Computed example of a mutant assay.
Amino acid sequence: MESLHLTRCSINTATLGHREPLDVTIDRIARAGFGGLAPWRHEVESADVSKIARQIRAHELKVSGYCRSTYFPASTREQRLANIQSNVRALNDAAELGAECFVMVVGGLPEASRDLSAARLQIQDGIGALLEAARRLGVRLAIEPLHPMYASERSVVNTIEQANAIARELDPHNDGFLGVAVDVYHCWWDPALETGVASLGDDKRIFAYHVSDWLVPTTDMLLDRGMMGDGVIDLQGFRRAIEKAGYAGMVEVEIFSRDNWWKLPPDQILQTCAARLRTVC
């Protein structure tokens, strides 16, 4: 399999630990030779969005994704509507940044709830309500299924099949604005992975592809992701499946590593990402 060229690779800014202002991070990523980045809302919203967008364009970087949505489920109708409006505001920033997609981590159970079905229905309704704004602004929505360990708090959408079923239900004519972000960390375990990826490819709904690795043991369910090649995920096999399904977009590194990588100098992290993307992904 052909080695990845860095111009096809993106760095999710969380990989560097959010230790520096976004403008500094953008310059670092460009200097290291990567073709894109995926910023987070708290970084963009605390800066001048237009200035950040100009800086990204000046470096000729792509924005592989904009992270991430406000969770959709809530205990009251008023809060659910407020969550949708929060996401509409983020979509406007995603449009200004030229993001290839708005990544939706959709949310878990509302407070004091045990009703998974109701939470999933709220999510579907929320995405449906957001879709009109996405079309108007020209920003694609990418549902990101999360590992089942996050179902209580972060996402009750946990498989590629689930995410694609929501996309098919809400966008049966597939006008190109609703798809899926496939993250190896969340999906590698799925026994239906290959068929799920193939179905996404048939529907042309793979909007993003994120890489990292699953460490053994994993010491923190959120903040102990591995650098590619340090864990047990068959990254090259995963990439073959994604590319066989027709995906030719950015390969985005997204690593949360509080006790390991985030303690290292940002340029060292970027150098390691570049080496691993070329050799093990």
Rank of each mutant, 00 (worst) to 15 (best):
Glu2Thr: 15
His5Ala: 08
Thr7Phe: 06
Cys9Glu: 00
Thr13Gly: 05
Glu20Thr: 05
Val24His: 12
Ala30Leu: 03
Ala38Trp: 10
Ala38Gln: 13
His42Ala: 09
Val44Gly: 11
Ala47Thr: 09
Asp48Lys: 15
Ser50Gln: 12
Lys51Cys: 10
Lys51His: 11
Ile52Gln: 12
His59Ser: 00
Leu61Asn: 03
Val63Lys: 15
Val63Leu: 10
Ser64Glu: 02
Ser64Lys: 03
Ser69Met: 05
Thr70Glu: 08
Thr76Val: 10
Arg77Ser: 14
Leu81Val: 07
Asn83Thr: 06
Asn83Phe: 14
Gln85His: 11
Asn87Asp: 13
Val88Phe: 11
Arg89Glu: 15
Arg89Asp: 15
Leu91Pro: 02
Asn92Ile: 11
Asn92Ala: 13
Ala94Lys: 07
Leu97Met: 09
Gly98Glu: 09
Val105Ala: 12
Gly107Ile: 04
Pro110Asp: 04
Glu111Trp: 04
Glu111Leu: 07
Ser113Tyr: 06
Ser113Gly: 03
Gln122Thr: 00
Gly126Ile: 08
Gly126Phe: 09
Leu130Gln: 10
Glu132Ala: 11
Glu132Gln: 10
Glu132Ile: 14
Ala134Thr: 08
Arg135Glu: 04
Arg135Leu: 02
Gly138Ala: 08
Val139Cys: 05
Ala142Met: 07
Ala142Asp: 01
Ala142Tyr: 09
Ala142Ile: 05
Glu144Val: 04
Leu146Ala: 03
Glu153Lys: 13
Glu153Thr: 15
Val156Trp: 12
Val157Met: 07
Asn158Asp: 00
Gln162Ile: 00
Ala163Trp: 02
Ala163Ser: 08
Asn164Asp: 15
Ala165Asp: 11
Arg168Val: 15
His173Thr: 01
Asp175Thr: 12
Phe177Tyr: 15
Phe177Ser: 01
Ala181Gly: 04
Val184Ile: 13
Trp188Gly: 00
Trp189Glu: 00
Ala192Asp: 02
Leu193Gly: 04
Thr195Arg: 14
Val197Lys: 12
Ala198Ile: 10
Leu200Gln: 09
Asp202Lys: 09
Arg205Ile: 07
Phe207Cys: 05
Trp214Lys: 10
Pro217Gly: 06
Pro217Val: 05
Thr218Glu: 13
Met221Thr: 06
Leu223Ile: 03
Gly226Ser: 05
Gly229Met: 05
Ile233Gly: 01
Gly237Ser: 07
Glu243His: 14
Lys244Thr: 15
Lys244Ser: 10
Gly246Trp: 02
Tyr247Cys: 14
Val251Ala: 02
Glu252Val: 10
Glu252Ser: 15
Phe256Trp: 13
Trp261Val: 08
Pro266Gly: 07
Asp267Arg: 15
Gln271Ser: 14
Cys273Lys: 04
Ala274Leu: 07
Arg276Val: 00
